[in-house]
């Protein structure tokens, strides 16, 4: 049990809140905003190193680049907040990506219907993940790890392993390339909308409260009358939905349905969520924290590119950032694994 000075002591009289806040002051602020500060430092470093980094064009570029990751990571945040992992997000994104392309081009469905069906596929896989975890009691780490190759198999079965090349309806490309008022990219607006909705869901709803409680202490949650299994299942379904949305947007950006397009998003989104767990509310997966993580990853990718760093360095940096994020959190006892 941790007791912080000035709060645990049965101090007689009135303890002024300001004084208590003063007692916690620096370590708490560092814990909460250290990651945000790191993001600012990275921003400043790249701004100094490359004169192209801080330009309207490049910033807008970064935002477009990270919009897919923002969406996938927001969904994953829900799963992690409920205490579960979802290692199938990459392959779910890939599957929904080829599905939406195939349904439009091969089946000739209208854009909206194709998108809805592709999203539905993600939700279905998420629900299956949830059922595996809650009904068969398979740890989510294993259940979702197994679901990845299953999604990949479905993906290959559908595409026969080929990419889906063909001109798609203009309205579909608009998702990824459109601009509102000729300046604000549509994907960024969509991503921020999704982030906003997930934020509200996690923080302002009964479901979100239940999910957070389940993730914080599943036994206490159950004994408080919270339907922990439905919380876990819903969280994994939302994670699948987020992955599917990301996959659809990715296809719109690439202009083709590629079988493996979304796979790489698993590591990036996990890194973003773990980075996020070191920000704002240390130890907790929060949508706003994940957003900071996504921004950090996006800046690193883009900045290293601008500086002409060799392509493999990006991979090294990704891995290192993941290790740094998790070790920071574990060292400060903010996250416990297993």
């Amino acid at each position: 049990m941790v007791a912080t000075d000035g709060t645990a002591a049965p101090a007689p009289g009135k303890a002024s809140p300001a004084r208590i806040a003063g007692g916690l002051d620096w370590s708490a602020i560092a814990a909460r905003y250290g990651t945000v500060a790191a993001a600012l430092v990275i921003f400043a470093a790249f701004a100094l190193a490359s004169d192209r980094f801080v330009s309207v064009n490049n910033i807008s570029n970064i935002l477009v680049q990270i919009s897919v990751l923002m969406i996938i990571s927001s969904g994953l945040t829900f799963a992690v907040a409920s205490g579960e992992f979802d290692l199938s997000v990459g392959q779910v994104a890939s599957l929904s990506g080829v599905l939406v392309a195939g349904l439009m081009i091969w089946t000739g469905l209208p854009v909206a219907v194709a998108i809805l069906l592709a999203l539905l596929a993600g939700v279905v896989i998420g629900v299956v993940n949830g059922l595996l975890v809650t009904r068969l009691r398979i740890p989510s780490l294993i259940a979702t790890l197994a679901m990845g190759p299953i999604a990949l198999g479905l993906n290959y079965a559908y595409t026969k392993g080929d990419s889906i090349y063909a001109t798609m309806p203009k309205s579909f490309y608009y998702i990824a390339t459109g601009k509102v008022f000729g300046i604000v990219p549509v994907p960024v607006i969509i991503a921020l909308l999704v982030v906003g909705i997930f934020y509200v869901l996690l923080n302002k709803t009964r479901l979100g409260r239940g999910v957070v409680a389940t993730g914080a202490n599943i036994q206490a949650a159950r004994l408080s009358g919270i339907r922990v299994n439905s919380c876990r299942l819903t969280a994994l379904a939302l994670s699948g939905l987020g992955a599917a949305m990301g996959g659809v947007m990715l296809t719109a950006r690439l202009g083709t349905g590629q079988s493996g397009a979304g796979d790489a998003y698993l590591l990036d989104s996990l890194t973003a969520v773990f980075l996020g767990m070191t920000a704002f509310k240390p130890g907790r997966a929060t949508v706003q924290g994940t957003l900071v993580g996504v921004v950090i990853i996006g800046m690193l990718d883009n900045g290293l590119n601008l500086l002409g760093a060799p392509f493999y360095l990006q991979n090294e940096v990704r891995g290192l950032v993941m290790i740094a994020a998790v070790s920071l959190a574990v060292l400060r006892a903010e996250i416990r694994f297993f």
Binding site: T205, R206, R209, G210, V212, A213, A216, N217, Q219, A220, A221, L223, S224, G225, I226, G283, R284
Partner: peptide
């Protein structure tokens, strides 16, 4: 282990028994 959510706030802990009633 079984009654409280150590990482959550006092308010969040207090509400866990009445999510239906307070939403």
């Amino acid at each position: 282990k079984k009654a409280l959510f150590p990482g959550l706030s006092v308010e969040e802990n207090l509400m866990t028994g009445s999510l239906d009633q307070t939403s």
